[in-house]
Computed example of a mutant assay.
Amino acid sequence: MTIPLFCLGGESAPEAIAADLKALVRLPEKARARFWDALGPALPDPVPAAAEDALDAFARTFEAPRDELGRALKASRFLVREACARGLARERFEEDVVRLAGGPLAPETAVIAPILLSRYDAARAALAAGALRETLTDHGAVLESIEWRLDAVLATSRGDAGAAKIAVLTLGYREGDQKNRVTLHLSPEKLEELRRACERMSR
Rank of each mutant, 00 (worst) to 15 (best):
D177Y: 07
E189F: 08
G40E: 05
E91K: 13
W36A: 01
A75C: 07
K22I: 09
A85W: 07
A13K: 04
A110R: 15
E91M: 11
D96K: 00
E144H: 08
L169Q: 05
A51Y: 08
A64G: 02
F62M: 00
D96E: 04
H139M: 12
A33F: 09
L88N: 01
A72Q: 04
L116D: 07
R119T: 07
P188D: 07
P65T: 06
A31Q: 01
H185T: 13
R81C: 06
E82Y: 08
G102R: 06
T170L: 04
L117I: 05
G162V: 10
K22A: 05
R158K: 13
E91N: 11
E144P: 00
A50I: 10
L8M: 05
A50K: 12
A164F: 09
R34A: 10
A57V: 05
G9Y: 01
S145D: 14
A167M: 09
A50V: 12
P28Y: 03
E199V: 14
E134F: 07
E82W: 09
F58Q: 03
E94M: 11
R86A: 09
A126N: 09
R99M: 10
T137G: 15
A141F: 08
E95Y: 09
C198Y: 10
K22G: 00
V153L: 13
L105Q: 15
P65V: 06
S145M: 03
E15W: 11
L132N: 13
A131Y: 08
A33M: 10
G159V: 05
P188K: 07
K165C: 14
V153H: 04
R26C: 08
A75G: 06
L8E: 05
A42Y: 02
A163N: 15
I17Q: 09
A57M: 07
R77T: 01
Y120Q: 03
A128R: 15
G130T: 12
A18E: 01
R34T: 08
V142L: 05
S187E: 02
M201C: 12
A131R: 15
G70H: 03
S202Q: 11
W148Q: 06
D56K: 14
L136W: 10
L136K: 13
G40W: 10
R119L: 13
F6A: 11
A54F: 03
A54I: 05
E192I: 08
A123V: 04
L169G: 06
R200C: 06
A123N: 05
S76I: 02
I146C: 11
A152W: 09
A72S: 06
R133T: 11
T61E: 14
L150R: 09
G130M: 08
V98A: 10
